[in-house]
Amino acid sequence: DEIHIHFNGVTIEFRGLTEEAKKALEEAIKRGASEEELKELARRLIK
């Protein structure tokens, strides 16, 4: 299970995320999180 985020022309790929983690990332994107914020969020979620 993986998710691809297209962000300002950059694709960020995450693997092994739970549904909750995906929802958290989607919410962050909707509120306009920066690419760095998304990566940091993903790091926290994957652990």
Rank of each mutant, 00 (worst) to 15 (best):
D1S: 13
D1E: 09
D1P: 13
D1C: 13
D1F: 15
E2L: 13
E2A: 14
E2S: 15
E2Y: 14
I3A: 07
I3P: 06
I3V: 13
H4Y: 11
H4L: 13
H4K: 12
H4Q: 10
I5G: 04
I5D: 03
H6C: 06
H6P: 03
F7L: 12
F7N: 04
F7P: 01
N8E: 07
N8P: 05
N8L: 08
N8T: 05
G9I: 02
G9L: 02
G9E: 05
G9W: 07
G9H: 04
V10K: 07
V10R: 03
V10Y: 07
V10S: 08
T11H: 11
T11S: 10
T11I: 13
T11M: 09
I12E: 05
I12T: 07
E13V: 15
E13L: 12
E13P: 07
E13N: 05
E13Q: 11
E13M: 11
F14I: 15
F14G: 02
F14A: 03
F14R: 00
F14P: 00
R15P: 14
R15D: 10
L17D: 01
L17M: 10
L17A: 06
L17S: 02
T18H: 06
T18I: 05
T18D: 11
E19R: 10
E19N: 09
E19D: 10
E19K: 09
E19A: 11
E20I: 06
E20M: 05
E20W: 08
E20K: 08
E20N: 08
A21L: 05
A21T: 07
K22I: 13
K22T: 07
K22D: 00
K23P: 02
K23V: 11
K23Q: 10
A24W: 05
A24L: 15
A24Y: 12
A24M: 14
L25T: 00
L25D: 00
L25A: 01
L25W: 13
L25M: 07
L25P: 00
L25K: 00
E26C: 14
E26D: 10
E26H: 08
E26N: 09
E26Q: 09
E26K: 10
E27C: 07
E27W: 09
A28Y: 05
A28K: 01
I29W: 14
I29N: 02
I29V: 10
I29S: 06
K30R: 12
K30F: 11
K30W: 12
K30E: 13
K30Q: 10
K30G: 09
R31Y: 13
R31K: 12
R31F: 09
R31V: 04
R31N: 13
G32F: 04
G32A: 01
G32K: 01
G32Y: 02
A33T: 06
A33E: 02
S34H: 03
S34G: 07
S34N: 10
S34Q: 04
E35N: 06
E35T: 11
E35L: 15
E35C: 06
E35R: 09
E36S: 09
E36D: 09
E36V: 06
E36L: 06
E36I: 08
E36T: 08
E36Q: 09
E36N: 08
E37D: 06
E37I: 02
E37Y: 05
E37M: 04
L38H: 00
L38S: 00
K39R: 12
K39V: 15
K39L: 15
K39T: 08
E40S: 06
E40W: 03
E40N: 04
L41W: 01
L41E: 01
L41S: 00
L41G: 00
L41D: 00
L41N: 00
A42G: 02
A42K: 01
R43G: 03
R43P: 00
R44P: 00
R44C: 09
R44T: 12
R44L: 14
L45N: 01
L45A: 02
L45Y: 11
L45C: 04
L45K: 00
L45S: 01
L45F: 11
I46W: 05
I46G: 06
I46Y: 09
K47S: 15
K47R: 05
